[in-house]
Design a protein around this nucleic acid. Structure first.
Length: 78
DNA sequence: CTTCTTACA
DNA sequence: TGTAAGGA
């Protein structure tokens, strides 16, 4: 789906969606048109990013601990 | 009209 | 984070 619909369903502004990508938190595929293409992967990932963000964590911090929160089951094998 | 990027408030 | 500009 395009960024507009994804923004609506995720509740995150288009601005922030592009910013998240800029920060390396999201890597949506690009279409030949150059448009970002969002799917299931981004769907779940954004939910976790949103939770951590709501928890008061800075984007920078979220970026760092994303690897241990990527799975649906917390991965504490650090 | 929607999206893209860069840049400014 | 929002909005403006210029182009596709």
């Amino acid at each position: 789906m395009k960024i507009g619909e994804f923004s609506h369903r995720s509740g995150i502004s288009v601005r922030m969606l592009r910013y998240y990508e800029q920060e390396g938190l999201l890597q949506p595929n690009r279409r030949e048109s150059g448009y970002r293409d969002y799917g299931e992967a981004e769907e779940q990932l954004v939910r976790r990013i949103r939770m951590l963000s709501t928890a008061g964590l800075k984007l920078d911090t979220i970026k760092q601990l994303l690897p241990c929160v990527l799975s649906d089951r917390p991965d504490f094998r650090l």
